[in-house]
Amino acid sequence: MRLDDVRLNDVRLAAGADTVQLLTENGDRLSDVRFDAWISDIGPEQLLGLYEDMLVIRRIDAEATALQRQGELGLWPPLLGQEASQIGSGRALRSDDFVFSSYREHGVAYCRGAGLVDLLRVWRGTTQSGWNPYDINMATPQVIIGAQTLHATGYALGIQADGSDAVAVAYFGDGATSEGDVTEAMIFAATYAAPVIFFCQNNQYAISEPVGLQAQRPIAERAPGFGIPSVRVDGNDVLAVMAVMRSALDRARSGGGPTFIEAVTYRVGPHTTADDPSRYRDPAEVEAWRGKDPVSRVEAHLGALGMLTQERLTRIQEKADRVAAEMRTGIVALQDPDPLTVFDNVYAEPHTGLARQRDHYSRYLRTFVGGDGR
C-alpha cells in the first residue's frame, strides 16, 4: 500500500469515526489499515526510544512539581498522563516545522530541543521567554487560552506564501475549543487551505469544568463543519498519535490544507500546582484513567517482546534522574533579573510612554532599601 493511499481525507475522517488505537491498555498491538503504514519504521528499538522519552519527560514533570512545592518556581502546569500525546506528535515533526503551544506542552518542547532549564525559566519568573523561538522553531508557550491557534494559522499562511512545505502546529486543550480564537483560526485555515494542524489534547477538564459540559459531541466532530477533516485518536497511545500526526503532516505538506486532531487523554494531576482537583473529580475516575496509562502500556508491549532488560531499565532511569538533577541545579542557580529589564524589548523602537513608565517605576524602586527593588 502506498502512503498516498492512506492520507487523511474527508471520507475516512468523517465526523463520528472511531477513535484510532494501535496499542491497547494491556500493551497489545492492534492493526489499522489506515495508519499502520505511517509507523512501519517504528520497530522495537524505535519504540524503546519513545518509551525513554516519555519516562524522561515524566521525571522532568515530577521534578518541576517538587521545585514548585519547595518554593523554587512560582507555578507549574503538570503534564502527567499526557506524555504519549506530546512525545508521539512531537517526534513526528521536522526541524523546520513551527510549533505554537499552550503552557502544558513541556514534552513537545523537549522534543524540539529546548534546554532543561529553559523549560522552567518562565515559571521561576526570571524571564519573559524560556528560549529563543527561532532556535527551536517553537513559540513561547501561550497562556491566553486558544490565542496560539491564530498565531499558527497566520504563520502557516506565511509558509504557504514562501512556497515551503513546512507545517505549523497549534497545541491546545479541550477548554480552548470554546474560545472564539479557535473558531476564527479554523475559518481562516480552511478558507486558504493553510498548512496547519490543530492538535487538541482533550484531557477531560478545562480547569474544573468537565469536557461534557462544553462538548455534547466529540470535539473532533466540530472541524468538518469548517471544511477541515478531523480524526479522534487515543491520546494515551504513542504509536497511534505518531501515525495520525505523520499522516496529517503529509497532507499539509502536499497542499491538502489543515487537519484537526483530537487526542483523547487525561490530566492525572492538577490543572496547575495552584489547583486542587480533589474538589471536582471522583477518585474512581482518576484510577480508571490510570489503568490507561501511556507509559505502562508501552512498557507491557516492550516487556512481551523481551526488550526491557534490567540493564536497559536501569540505564533509562539513570538518564531520567540525571536530567532531573541537571535541571534542578540549573534552575536554583538562576539569578533574579534587574527589575527594570521588564521594560526591555516591549517595543522595537524607543517609546515615550514606556520611558515615562520606566522612570516612574525606577523612582518607586528607589524608595526601598538598596534602591533597586531587591
Rank of each mutant, 00 (worst) to 15 (best):
Thr272Lys: 01
Pro283Ser: 04
Asn203Ile: 09
His301Leu: 06
Tyr192Ser: 07
Tyr155Lys: 08
Val332His: 13
Val211Leu: 15
Ala92Lys: 04
Ala139Met: 09
Ala333Met: 02
Leu249Phe: 06
Gly27Arg: 01
Arg253Asp: 07
Arg124Asn: 00
Ala324Cys: 11
Glu45Lys: 13
Asn137Pro: 05
Asp174Cys: 13
Ala114Val: 09
Met242Trp: 05
Ser247Cys: 09
Val298Glu: 03
Ser40Ala: 11
Ser278Leu: 15
Val167Arg: 15
His301Ala: 01
Val323Ala: 11
Pro339Ala: 06
Val6Thr: 07
Ala15Met: 08
Gln310His: 11
Leu22Pro: 00
Tyr364Asp: 13
Ile261Lys: 01
Asp275Phe: 04
Thr149Trp: 03
Ala114Thr: 02
Ile42Trp: 06
Ala147Cys: 12
Ser208Arg: 14
Ala243Thr: 10
Leu93Thr: 09
Gln357His: 12
Pro270Asp: 05
Leu3Glu: 03
Val369Asp: 09
Leu213Asn: 12
Pro77Thr: 14
Pro294Phe: 02
Met327Gly: 00
Phe260Arg: 02
Asn236Lys: 05
Gly90Cys: 15
Trp289Arg: 13
Val241Asn: 04
Arg356Ala: 07
Ala220Phe: 03
Thr126Leu: 04
Gly16Tyr: 09
Phe100Val: 00
Phe199Thr: 01
Pro210Asn: 12
Gln82Gly: 01
Leu13Tyr: 10
Gln128Glu: 05
Glu184Pro: 03
Ala170Val: 01
Tyr364Gln: 08
Pro294Asn: 01
Asp135Tyr: 06
Arg34Pro: 06
Ala170Gly: 00
Pro133Lys: 02
Gly81Ser: 00
Ala223Gly: 00
Glu221Asp: 15
Val108Tyr: 04
Gln204Gly: 15
Arg267Met: 02
Ser208Glu: 03
Leu249Gln: 09
Gly255Thr: 05
Val238Asp: 12
Ser102Thr: 15
Ile136Asp: 02
Tyr155Glu: 13
Ala14Pro: 12
Ser101Ile: 08
Arg12Ser: 14
Pro277Asp: 09
Val117His: 00
Lys319Gly: 08
Gln160His: 08
Thr329Ser: 13
Thr314Ile: 06
Gln68Tyr: 00
Gln216Cys: 11
Gly115Phe: 02
Trp289Cys: 07
Ser102Met: 14
Asp162Tyr: 10
Arg29His: 08
Phe198Glu: 01
Tyr155Gly: 14
Trp123Asp: 00
Ser208Asp: 04
Ala193Gly: 15
Gly158Val: 04
Asp41Ser: 09
Val20Leu: 10
Leu150Asp: 07
Ser296Gln: 10
Arg356Asp: 04
Lys319Arg: 11
Ala190Tyr: 04
Asn26Ala: 10
